[in-house]
Each structure stands twice: as C-alpha cells, then as structure tokens.
Design a protein around this nucleic acid. Structure first.
Lengths: 163, 163
DNA sequence: TAGAACGTTTAGAACTTATTAAACGTAATA
DNA sequence: TATTACGTTTAATAAGTTCTAAACGTTCTA
C-alpha cells in the first residue's frame, strides 16, 4: 500500500466517522468514500480486503448504496466480478435522501394530525373549566404545528434545486 | 383521563415516532410533546405517570431537553417539585441543534482535510504511472469535497434566519 | 457435467444503546 | 434531629444493531 493510500485511509476514516455520527451505517460510508477516491471501479473482493470487513457485509451495504443511487454497478470486460463506482454527486444524494425520508414520515404525521383535528373539534366542551382549557390549548398547539409543518415543506420544495 | 388526553396521546405517539426516526431519543420526544401540548408546566412525577417510564429516565432526558433549550424549569409556588414547560419554538430548536451539531463535526473534518491536502502535495510523484494517477485523482476529489463543504457551510449560515 | 468463482442469505456472536429499579444525596418539614 | 419528599446516579438487564463465518445458489469454465 502506497502513500496515497494512507492519506485516503485517513480521509475515509474521518469521513465515515462523520457519516456515522449522522446515523449512516459506518461501512456504507466507508464503501462510498473508498469508491469516491478511487480512480477506477472496484470489485467486492477489493473492497472487502481494503476495508477489512466480511464479504457479506460489503454485499449488503453496497446494495443499500445502490438503492440510494450513491454507487452504480459497472461492467468490466474480461471479468465476471461486479464492479462499483461512486456517484460523485454527494450533495445531491444527501438531499434526495433527506427529502424523500422526510416526505414519507410527513405523510404519516399528516394523517395523525388530520384525525386529531377532526376528533378535537367534535369533542363536546365537557362542561368543566379544566377540560375546556386543555381543549382550547390543544387546538392552538395543533395550529402551531401545522404552521411549522408548512414552513418545512416549503423549505423541502426549495431544496429541489439540489435534485 | 379525558378525551382530549386521548387525542394528545396519539399526537405524542405520532410525533415522537417521527422524532425517533430522525435519531432523537424517543422519550425525549415524548417529553417535549407532552409539555408542548400541556397548558401548564408539569412535574417529573406527572410526566413519569403519564408516559409510563421510570423516574430516572425522565430525569435524564428532561435535562437533555433543558440543555438543548427545548424545555425550561419553572417555579411553582407552594410546591418543591421541579416543573417544566416546553419552549414552543420547535423549529428554532431543531435548526439550532442541527447547525451546532454539524459545525462541531465539520471542525474535525476540516482538520483531516487540511492535513490530507498538505500530505498529498508533499508526496513525490513516485515515478510509476499508476501511483501518479491515484495522486492526481485524489487531489481532484479533495477539491470536490471542499466545494461541497463550502456549499453546506453557506446553507448553514443562511439557516441563521431561524435562530 | 464437475468444479470453481462469484454474490447473497442467514444464524448467531459481539457490541451498543435504552431502560429500569434501587441506592443515594440533599433539602424541606415536623 | 428524624423523617419525608424530592431529583440524580448507578448497576444490571433488556432490546436493538452491526458484523462475521459459513452455507447456499448461480453462473461460468473446463
């Protein structure tokens, strides 16, 4: 292993630490960075050896990266191995992933909020002062959440410039 | 427990699920939401009973929320318990936390990248073609990372409008 | 068709994180 | 001062995740 490799190892370690701290699987981060810094596509075996992790682990994680469109399989003539190269558009990958993840979760939340809104407006005042307080307060809070929700949605829409 | 409480329970469940899926401790999310929907400050005991988790757990997590300035302790006369209320500025809390977390991690990354840059430019060409390729390619990639880095930093700076 | 070279799946070991119950310390109260 | 009512810390356990080694199923090659 030459000197360039050592420098890259450090970059991979630092970068995958960063990714891991954001909740991305460490090996996925390492795989992506390894490919990102590699001038040619690498085979599963090469990645396995270089990162010193099991073949199965590499297999599983590289396919996760493929699903995120962070890497892609390339065809290398004369070999029947699978080779992968990094999609260098890292920012786009991150934002796409972020946007998509949030949208899905938002849908679930939206349903819950819609139901809460219906339920709460159909509640009888219940007579006693305490319950009434809670009732009014809850409505206000729900409205506040909706406002925030719209702010974030708007931001997400703007982040389309990265896609 | 009245009907408003039931609706709020659903909102807490949905919201804390959302938070948990973003990597925030589930109990922290539940605590925040419980307070967010509560018209008055609540004591540790009340939160413990309502959320059905241990006192210690509530204690630890409420202090994490305090550190993030997501809740604050309030004084209730005639009681020697600690009462807490939510900081309703949820978006501000989220962005502050995001910004701060990223900044810290960025500092570490910055150091690694600076060192890599120095090391890589001080490397001799090593003669052989293959190493030279790697060398040149690595420099290009490093530059690409720096560009992305600057893009995110700029975005973070703009997100100051939320602080 | 037998054997080798692959990538994938899986069962469980090794770690990590979340959670609890109980011990503890402190301050208020009687 | 003794007791009680708190919040905090801690040690043990439960739950969840990551990781490996080995079995497996294909596809290629001889």
């Amino acid at each position: 292993m030459n000197q360039t490799a050592t420098v890259i190892d450090e970059l991979i370690a630092g970068g995958s630490n960063f990714a891991a701290s954001l909740g991305i699987n460490r090996i996925a981060g390492e795989l992506y960075l390894l490919l990102f810094f590699s001038p040619r596509a690498l085979s599963l075996d090469e990645m396995t050896q270089r990162l010193k992790v099991s073949k199965g682990h590499v297999s599983t994680n590289i396919r996760a990266l493929e699903r995120w469109q962070a890497v892609r399989k390339v065809w290398v003539k004369g070999s029947r191995k699978d080779y992968y190269e990094a999609n260098p558009d890292t920012l786009r990958i991150i934002f796409r992933q972020l946007r998509q993840g949030l949208s899905q979760r938002f849908e679930t939340l939206e349903k819950i909020m819609a139901r809460a809104k219906t339920e709460i407006s159909s509640l009888p005042g219940e007579g006693e002062a305490k319950s009434n307080d809670e009732f009014v307060y809850c409505r206000q809070r729900l409205e506040k959440i909706e406002t925030m929700y719209k702010t974030i949605s708007a931001l997400l829409d703007k982040s389309e410039i990265f896609l």
